[in-house]
Design a protein around this nucleic acid. Sequence first.
DNA 1: GCCAACGTTGGC
DNA 2: GCCAACGTTGGC
Length: 153
Amino acid sequence: MKYWLVKSEPDCFSIADLAKSKRQTTCWDGVRNYQARNFLRDEMRCGDQVLFYHSSCEQPAVMGLCEVVKEAYPDHTAFDRDSDHYDPKSKQSDPTWMMVDIKLVRQFAEPLPLEKLKSVAGLKEMELLRRGSRLSVQPVTRPQFDLILKLAK
DNA sequence: GCCAACGTTGGC
DNA sequence: GCCAACGTTGGC
């Protein structure tokens, strides 16, 4: 099993929005970065555990835990002229962009702020904390993942 | 294939 | 709103 962290701007789609979604499940659309796409497409498997992170907001934080419930399939928003994520270069016959479905497992009782993560010795190597890191879908190691769940209690 | 210009991300 | 870091684009 693998472990991941995905970023979302809460103004756009928050963990509360996920909690309100049908079956507490959403398609993770709009990823338009090749490295992130490759993780989604090539490595994410059903049952993988996913940390849900709020970015570009007042308090950037890990908000809860999700899991992958559907593996990669074409991101239809890339074909939609009216979508913010429209990409004319992605063709139905050969889709450039993919998405997975994730389901909420549980929201943390308290957000686990970025500021806190920075102070934890065992998380020094996290991709999230790397200077200039912008990956919106990123792998998390098992020890990092376990530590974050422990901190979230 | 290089690299400057530009656009985006995301913390602060 | 600022700005550093990064990714992409496109001329050459």
